[in-house]
Design a protein around this nucleic acid. Structure first.
Lengths: 205, 205
DNA sequence: AAGATCGAGTAGACACTGTCTACTCACCCA
DNA sequence: TGGGTGAGTAGACAGTGTCTACTCGATCTT
């Protein structure tokens, strides 16, 4: 996953500027960021897009398909943040650490979207291909892990580390980690996870 | 309506419990285990309990309160499973490993309940004290961690490890971990997480 | 050029949901 | 005896997702 050039003009699935389809997704993204995942009713999205409640059906067969398109936008934004912050000149360990920080920051600042992205009950639909959306990010992480821990099975370590990030984000959001330590910052858990899976940080010169 | 209980003098089978309040929770637990979290509508629970849709309101002011009571039952069952499987004569590292296996097994076999337990949007209500329900389990884990890694901050390591378990359960359930490695068993991620946070397993005597 | 076709959006119905309120009714106690 | 009270019933209300009939304008065909 070293697509050096950040090619921006990808028409891909739906041109955001295109008609109602893109407008519904854009309205949904705004809505989930502003009011959370439970505000994403089909009728409310249609209302804010200025169309009748039956209009979305022409572009998304069911509510889940619309929500999945919104969630896909979230994965895209998360991926974009990671590659935007990435410094290829830095060491792999430092790059993983940055990736992890961006990940946790995204989960914290885009709580509603992050929640939606992993609400499989709202998204799971087999051929929607939503899970595959996170694969490039995972591959990127796996590549970096392989350089930090050459002996280990990089896919397993990367998966376990990703799970750790995800768990920290979720339990922190849920409140139990906060409750357990009394602090107000998940950073200790993050450094503990990074040290555990990658070994202690290299001394920065 | 269909009040066959009064005619036959039903002995309430197992636990007389609390009348309708307990019956609603019991029905909810059966329902979430059988059909998942999205099947837990207030009216369906009332229907299966044989009462009108307004009856639960007498015992649970709102739908969230009923769901929280059901989720609390889930935390209780998880805690019971952990303590039932625990062997105090074993070493702390082995006991943590067993706890982790029980945790992942619970998440896998009680998918609907586990999902409900961490659906903060369905449960979060400030003074419901649901998050506190998981504290004894966390304290148990923290105590064991303190014995395995005496030098470290046990609460932080235990929190990070718990987050790792939670993330593995969730991402495995979600499908992305399965997708990333192609395997069909989350065990590699579990051992990777345990080795990472606790050090490699001690050779079994 | 006229008519048929078709995609896109509208409007209404339907079966649900959670909440609220008015009502019944057995029971308990003064 | 009678008044309260707690528990459960029944109906209303607004909101939801889905489905279907309908309109309407643009495009295509002959």
């Amino acid at each position: 996953m070293n697509d050096e050039a950040g090619v921006h003009g990808e028409p891909e699935t739906a041109d955001p500027e295109d008609g109602l389809r893109g407008r519904l997704v854009r309205v949904g993204v705004e809505l989930v960021n502003a009011e959370g995942a439970q505000a994403l009713s089909l009728r409310e999205i249609a209302r804010r897009a200025g169309v009748s409640h039956g209009a979305p059906r022409r572009h998304f067969p069911t509510h889940l398909d619309l929500l999945s398109a919104i969630a896909r936008q979230g994965f895209a934004e998360l991926g974009a943040r990671v590659t935007a912050e990435d410094r290829e000149t830095a060491g792999p360990r430092a790059r993983i650490e940055l990736l992890a920080r961006v990940y946790l920051d995204y989960a914290a600042t885009r709580r509603g979207m992050y929640e939606l992205m992993f609400r499989h009950d709202l998204l799971e639909s087999g051929r929607l291909g939503l899970r595959e959306t996170s694969l490039p990010l995972f591959a990127h992480l796996t590549g970096l892990v392989a350089r930090v821990r050459p002996g280990a099975d990089a896919a397993v370590v990367a998966g376990a580390l990703w799970a750790n990030l995800h768990g920290i984000a979720q339990l922190w959001h849920w409140g139990s980690l906060r409750l357990a330590t009394g602090g107000d910052d998940p950073a200790p858990f993050l450094t503990a996870a990074l040290d555990a899976h990658l070994g202690p940080a290299e001394p920065t010169p």
